[in-house]
Nucleic acid binder design. Structure first.
Lengths: 146, 146
DNA sequence: TCCATATAGATGCAGTTGCATCTATATGGG
DNA sequence: CCCATATAGATGCAACTGCATCTATATGGA
């Protein structure tokens, strides 16, 4: 229904979602870059691929990571050039392909995680009073995803 | 201290912060674009300028909006080309300038707000159970900003 | 079978961002 | 006053993103 008006609390939550997202993402990316690692998007893709035994189609990555189709397409080109993934033809769908994480990709995940998890603790965990608060924040953010 | 490990709740909160941020931002930007309006960043700058009677220096916008210096610099070029802002030399600091919102800029804010506020209500307010939840989410996100 | 339509993914081009650097002015110490 | 250093903002270039479109394969109905 058009014209619905958000409450003050809703507007504040929206504004802080944007600000906090930028602030925390910026801080985490800075930490990763300073350690000589590629952007978070690379980690995200590789992590999804490692989770999914048997690889994933680009379209699945797109849906999971909320990245536009053409951006996934080119991100995969970069990851392939870096030797972090492998492409296979899809056995049943001639239009499709299956993306697999390579051993180098797995190694990169292992190398990045200590830096990454420290960044998450520093920029998120340490700012909250308790695990209960972190859980509550996660729950509320989950609601925004429907 | 290096090597600190985040709790599961913290990692989940981080992951959802990124996902929810992208999801909600994408949805709001889509609504604005569909109504023929420029990106949110334009609104953000104009809103800050309207709030600050007497204009702002680019550096102040940079700090307030968490946008990099060179991006503010070029965003202001676009806003100026669109006639939405005015530049003045800074009266005391010869390196600096003062940015003011123009009448066209104010008009754009007025035109965008009905669409924008509906988008906020649709993609944030309606997903939460109550104003109390929205307030709690705002509080927790605020903690991430220190 | 054949065709219209749908879907998976790639690509050309323009606009935007990140990174490093540059210019101009300001400021503080000698 | 002069110089070294700091700060405000701009800019060249490369990388990335959005947008529209394109190619290739798949699918469902006549």
């Amino acid at each position: 229904m058009p014209g619905e008006k958000p409450s003050k609390e809703t507007v504040l939550a929206w504004a802080r979602l944007m600000r906090a997202g930028r602030h925390v993402l910026g801080a985490v990316e800075r930490d990763l870059k300073q350690a000589g690692f590629p952007p978070l998007a690379w980690y995200d893709v590789l992590l999804e691929l490692r989770r999914a035994k048997g690889g994933l189609r680009p379209g699945a990555l797109e849906a999971e990571l909320l990245i536009a189709q053409h951006n996934i397409s080119r991100l995969l080109v970069r990851l392939e050039e870096a030797g972090l993934i492998e492409r296979r033809r899809h056995p049943e769908d001639g239009r499709g392909q299956i993306i697999l994480i390579s051993e180098e990709g797995r190694a990169l995940l292992r190398q990045m995680w200590p830096i990454y998890r420290t960044a998450i603790e520093t920029h998120v965990g340490a700012k909250l009073k308790s695990e209960k608060e972190a859980g509550e924040l996660a729950r509320l953010l989950g609601a925004l995803l429907e």
